[in-house]
């Protein structure tokens, strides 16, 4: 067989083999915890006071039994899931452990489908509606069209615009939703899955605590709202998942997945260095 060593498909093959090989023997490695991840956990654990609008500072005491948490699955979750999965699982596990009331909204069919396939069955089985938590500590609105305009409308009343959950159950009849309607005051904490625009809708006006989760890629555009003080914390990518597992003590796979990332990073770094040495040597020859 004549192997063309410059064929870029070899890179794909090598990376696949490395991921496969390192997945067989996961080892947890040391990782520093970045500040926005620490603050994410601190908000959930201890709470925070938000005073972006100085007129009406809002104190959030951390996630406890009955804390109303809205999860906005409204960014590019479907596309970023491979990088977000373990972090979302760890945070969701923590929220359930603390007794939070979780309300989930998906902004697109894709976003709903990805959670239906990879997350919801993990916590609530294949028929979530029949799970004992459903309606008590978890409600799924499913995909509701309208984007952030919907969030604007939900500020005053969720039920006025969206009277039923994804299964057609009336929200007015669901126990968990009895005090969960005007999102500007009824929602204790918002967790955005790569969600955008929450600053102007909720934080600036109502001081709603907002946490963000995204892929490593999302950090570039979400960092701005964190440094400006609008987001109270962020968890980004598999690294964020590993950080959250460390901070919360919840066992998960993100920490072990860092071995994959490390192996690939090493290969790419070596390839870049070798390529540059070759380039320098070829320049000297000419």
């Amino acid at each position: 067989m004549n192997i063309k060593w410059k064929d870029t498909r070899l890179i794909y093959l090598v990376i696949f083999l490395v991921i496969f090989g390192t997945s067989l023997t996961p080892i947890t490695l040391p990782l520093p915890v970045v500040q926005w991840s620490k603050e994410f956990y601190k908000v959930i654990d201890e709470g925070v006071t938000v005073s972006v609008n100085p007129d009406n500072p809002r104190h959030f005491a951390g996630v406890k039994e009955g804390t109303r948490v809205m999860i906005l699955n409204s960014g590019e979750t479907a596309k970023l899931w491979g990088d977000m999965s373990e972090a979302v699982k760890a945070v969701w596990t923590d929220l359930r452990r603390r007794g939070a009331h979780i309300l989930l909204w998906s902004s697109s069919v894709d976003n709903q489908a990805i959670l239906d396939k990879y997350l919801i069955p993990y916590f609530y089985g294949l028929d979530p509606q029949s799970h004992s938590d459903y309606g008590v500590s978890f409600v799924d609105l499913g995909f509701v069209a309208g984007g952030n305009a919907l969030l604007e409308q939900w500020r005053t009343s969720l039920r006025a615009i969206t009277p039923v959950d994804r299964y057609g159950n009336s929200l007015a009849d669901i126990p968990m939703m009895q005090n969960f309607d005007a999102m500007r005051i009824d929602c204790d904490l918002i967790i955005g899955l790569d969600a955008r625009g929450l600053e102007s809708i909720y934080v600036i006006r109502y001081n709603t605590p907002v946490l963000e989760m995204g892929g490593t890629d999302s950090a570039g555009y979400l960092a701005l709202s964190y440094t400006a003080g609008y987001f109270q914390g962020m968890i980004m990518g598999q690294r964020g998942g590993a950080e959250y597992e460390f901070l919360s003590g919840i066992p998960g796979r993100a920490s072990a997945y860092m071995l994959n990332s490390m192996a690939i990073a090493l290969i790419v770094t070596v390839a870049i260095v070798v390529g540059n040495i070759q380039y320098l040597m070829s320049r000297r020859e000419t």
Binding site: S107, G146, G147, N148, A149, L150, L151, E152, R196, G197, Y221
Partner: peptide, 8 residues
């Protein structure tokens, strides 16, 4: 599109 936020 009507996502209603900046990037959209």
């Amino acid at each position: 599109n009507f996502w209603g936020h900046s990037s959209g």
